[in-house]
């Protein structure tokens, strides 16, 4: 598959059930309201060719976008959520978990592992919004923590691609505790002198924003992604005022100093590769006088 700037990238969405959608399926773009062929999106990283609206990627698609082909090694088998609280005593949580697992082929809302990008090894976590709106419960917290600890042990840079509708309410305060747990692991990773890059995608809100999404040494965001702690509806209701234009968009947060760069998906792979090199210790070959003069 031919990517942008003539660079060959691995085909996306191989592992995703969406790739099975027959050719000729059309959908309405949320950005420009035009009718677009699914195939046009598939060949354009799920970005609308008309207006540049970024449709969500599955974890599989995102991993393919950001790693060398075949390099991703998942950390463990993946954990599954349990209904520890017997939430509302109606069995609805475990039932919906099973349904969502079957529908998405995912065990929960995050996929974690180690990969290389242009040969640079790094640890990668990707959240998938299809799974309970990528809400953070015990599993997401534990997987991110394990990956961060593994990255610290193996002296790897860490990249987390975030998306989240908030906390996994069905796990009560245990889900809240995952914010602290992941932040603690990131403290140790930081203390080991290792870099962490957060890539914020649409939407990143709630407890994920108030923990690892905001803790990147470098924070990238996809265009127009909604990023915030409280959701816009809650803010509108609480303050009873109109929200400023573009409020909580990636561009708004770039203006307000949270985000380092807003990166269109077509450039994300190249920019991440560049950053990983910048954030790695410099090899002697790269800093000779000759190199500087060239």
């Amino acid at each position: 598959m031919q990517g942008f700037f003539g660079k060959t990238i691995s085909p996306l969405g191989k592992a995703s059930p969406k790739a099975d959608i027959p050719a000729g399926v059309w959908l309405k773009c949320k950005g420009c309201e035009q009718t677009i062929a699914q195939s046009a999106l598939d060949s354009n990283l799920q970005v609308c060719p008309v207006c540049g609206h970024h449709f969500p990627l599955t974890a599989g698609q995102r991993i393919a976008l950001l790693s060398d082909e075949g390099s991703f090694q998942q950390l463990g088998e993946g954990l599954s959520s349990v209904d520890t609280l017997d939430f509302a005593h109606d069995n609805s949580y475990p039932r919906k978990l099973k349904e969502t697992q079957a529908k998405t082929g995912l065990k929960d809302a995050v996929v974690c592992g180690c990969a290389t990008l242009d040969g640079t090894p790094y640890a990668l976590a990707v959240m998938d919004f299809r799974f309970f709106g990528a809400s953070m419960g015990s599993v997401v917290g534990e997987e991110i923590t394990r990956l961060t600890e593994e990255a610290t042990r193996r002296h790897l840079p860490l990249v987390i691609v975030t998306a989240s509708g908030g906390a996994r309410m069905q796990e009560g305060a245990l889900s809240l505790m995952q914010m602290a747990k992941t932040s603690g692991a990131l403290m140790r990773h930081d203390e080991a002198g290792l870099p962490y890059i957060a890539i914020l995608t649409h939407p990143t809100t709630g407890g994920v924003t108030a923990s690892f999404a905001s803790l990147g040494d470098v924070i990238l965001a996809e265009p127009k992604a909604l990023i915030g702690f409280a959701g816009p509806r809650v803010i509108k209701e609480t303050t009873r005022s109109e929200l400023p234009p573009g409020f909580q968009s990636a561009e708004f947060l770039l203006d307000h100093g949270l985000v380092d760069r807003v990166v269109p998906r077509a450039k994300l792979r190249a920019e991440l590769a560049q950053l990983l090199v910048y954030l790695s210790p410099e090899t002697t070959a790269g800093c000779t006088t000759a190199g500087r003069q060239a």
Partner: peptide, 14 residues
């Protein structure tokens, strides 16, 4: 939100 309440909490946690 403009002054990043999420970031402020996250930094405290870490």
């Amino acid at each position: 939100e403009e002054r990043h309440i999420g970031e402020a909490i996250a930094i405290n946690l870490r």
